[in-house]
Computed example of a mutant assay.
Amino acid sequence: MKNKIIGWLNQPRFLRHMMNWYGPYRGAGVKIRHLADDFSSATVQMPLRWYNKNYVGVHFGGSLYSMVDPFHMLLVMNQLGSEYIVWDKAATIKFISPGRGTVTAHFEVTEAQLQDIREHTQSNEKYLPEFEVEVLAEDGTLVAKAYKTLYIRKKPMKNAVQ
């Protein structure tokens, strides 16, 4: 029964719904608009509101970062499956232009990226791939670029002969 519950919790539709109600996201105004059924992509938006704007009237940098924080890890870990350990290792965000109005970030993890990860981890070595995502304004202006480094390793096999 426990596995059924865990499986149910990891369904894209349920996960999207729960993340949209998650306190820090609600507080920042972040909304997950799309989460692919196969976890290959996600789209996140954040409108400019009084509670997520900074002193000079544009998107607060912390809110911009929070809207992009977990998605590469979530997409990769759900596509690779339970035999892998996937963690956020490092992150950098570069603010390019002021964020006004609604900003959007689209995440995608391709089959080629997954194959690269599988190849680099097949001998149980850690792998630290970097992913990039752009945060765009409604008119397509680049607001920020975020870079996420993930820590990925195959889980040790239980009862493996050493």
Rank of each mutant, 00 (worst) to 15 (best):
S41A: 15
R13E: 09
R26D: 01
L48E: 15
K31Y: 01
R33A: 14
Y25H: 06
N20G: 11
V44Q: 15
K53S: 07
S40L: 13
G29F: 00
N54D: 13
A36H: 05
H59V: 09
D37T: 05
H34Y: 05
P12F: 04
H17A: 04
Q45I: 02
K31F: 01
A28P: 06
S41K: 09
V44M: 15
L48Y: 14
R26H: 00
N52F: 13
F39R: 09
W21Y: 07
P12V: 01
V56E: 04
M46H: 07
F14E: 03
G29T: 01
P12K: 04
H17I: 08
A42F: 11
P24Y: 02
N54F: 13
L35M: 10
R49T: 14
L15K: 11
G27Q: 00
H17V: 07
V44G: 15
K53H: 10
R16I: 01
V30Y: 02
Y51M: 11
S40P: 15
Y22D: 08
Y22G: 08
N52Y: 09
H59L: 08
R49Y: 12
K31A: 08
M18N: 07
Y51F: 14
V58I: 12
S40N: 12
G27K: 00
V30N: 02
A28R: 05
G27Y: 00
V56G: 09
G27M: 00
G57S: 06
T43K: 09
W21M: 09
R16S: 07
V58K: 01
F14G: 00
D37G: 10
G57Y: 03
W21S: 12
G57H: 03
Y25C: 05
G57Q: 06
Y22T: 04
R16G: 04
A28F: 07
L48F: 14
L48T: 15
A36K: 02
M46I: 06
D38R: 06
W50F: 15
N20Q: 07
A28G: 05
M46P: 05
S40W: 13
P47M: 09
R13H: 05
N54I: 11
G23W: 00
K53D: 05
F14I: 11
K53G: 04
F39H: 13
R26P: 02
S40M: 13
L15F: 07
Y55E: 10
S41Y: 11
P24L: 03
R26K: 01
N52E: 12
N20T: 04
S41W: 10
R33C: 14
Y51P: 10
H59S: 01
W21V: 05
R26Q: 03
M18V: 03
W21H: 10
F39L: 12
N54M: 13
G29L: 00
M19P: 11
M18H: 05
Q45K: 05
R13D: 07
M19V: 05
M18W: 09
